[in-house]
Amino acid sequence: MATLLIQINMEGERSLNQESIRRLTDEEWTKIKHLLPGTEPRKSSGRPAINSRAVLDAIYWIEDSGERWLYLPSHFPPQQTCYTKYLKWKREGILDQIHALLERNA
């Protein structure tokens, strides 16, 4: 597990050591992408599909950093979207399947 360095500047804003952010590798993504919705293009109109890989990266950032969803960095999808997907995937057992496939601690 990577160690994250979070600093608070004089204005009270948090900054994260960007080198410590772990993202899914292409190999890991290939193993698990079939489990996640939104990996296929939508055929209907409406809201665009959310990038499931980016949401999963955000979930792992939260798990690895121990931070609250409120402090999710802005380069990830919106915090509420990521949190909603986290709850849904956790409830449906998708995260457990992903952890098993990637041999991460659940």
Rank of each mutant, 00 (worst) to 15 (best):
L35E: 05
S65F: 09
L95S: 13
L5E: 07
S15R: 05
I8L: 12
S20I: 05
P41I: 10
R42G: 01
S45G: 12
A58E: 01
S74W: 10
A54H: 02
P78K: 06
E28N: 05
I50N: 09
K33A: 01
A100I: 07
E92R: 14
Q7M: 05
H99A: 15
G12V: 06
A54W: 03
R91M: 04
C82V: 05
Y60H: 10
N17F: 02
S74Y: 13
E19D: 10
Q18C: 02
E27S: 02
Q80H: 01
L102I: 11
K85G: 01
Q7G: 02
N51P: 01
P78Q: 04
K88Q: 12
P37V: 13
S20F: 00
L87K: 11
T30Y: 09
H75N: 12
A100Y: 08
K43I: 15
A2H: 06
D26A: 06
L70K: 10
E19I: 02
R22T: 11
R22C: 03
I62E: 03
S45E: 00
C82L: 06
Y86E: 03
L24D: 02
Y83W: 07
M1I: 00
Y71A: 13
E28Y: 04
L70D: 02
K31H: 04
H99T: 13
F76E: 08
A54P: 00
K88L: 11
G66A: 12
I94W: 08
R42C: 00
D57V: 02
K33R: 15
P78E: 07
Q7D: 07
L95T: 12
P37R: 15
L70G: 00
W29Q: 04
Q79L: 00
E19N: 09
D96M: 14
P78W: 08
L24W: 09
I8D: 11
S65K: 05
L4Q: 11
I21Y: 02
H99G: 10
R91S: 14
D57G: 03
K43D: 09
Y71K: 05
R104M: 12
L95F: 10
E103P: 00
T39C: 15
E92A: 10
G38D: 11
D26C: 02
H34T: 01
E40H: 09
N9I: 01
S15I: 04
A49P: 14
T39P: 03
N51D: 15
T25W: 01
H75P: 04
L56P: 01
E13L: 12
L101H: 06
Q18T: 09
S74V: 12
I6C: 12
P48T: 06
E11M: 06
T84P: 00
P73M: 04
S44Q: 01
Q7R: 11
E63W: 03
A49R: 10
R91N: 14
H99K: 15
D96V: 04
L70Y: 08
H99W: 15
I50G: 07
D64E: 14
D96W: 01
N105Q: 14
D64K: 08
M1N: 10
R47T: 06
L102K: 13
H99R: 15
P73T: 08
T81D: 04
T81R: 02
R14C: 11
I94F: 06
I32L: 09
K88A: 13
I6D: 06
W61A: 08
L36K: 06
R53G: 05
I50C: 07
Y83F: 10
G38Q: 08
A58L: 05
L101C: 07
E92Q: 12
A2R: 07
W61F: 14
L87D: 04
P37G: 15
I50H: 12
K43C: 03
G12K: 11
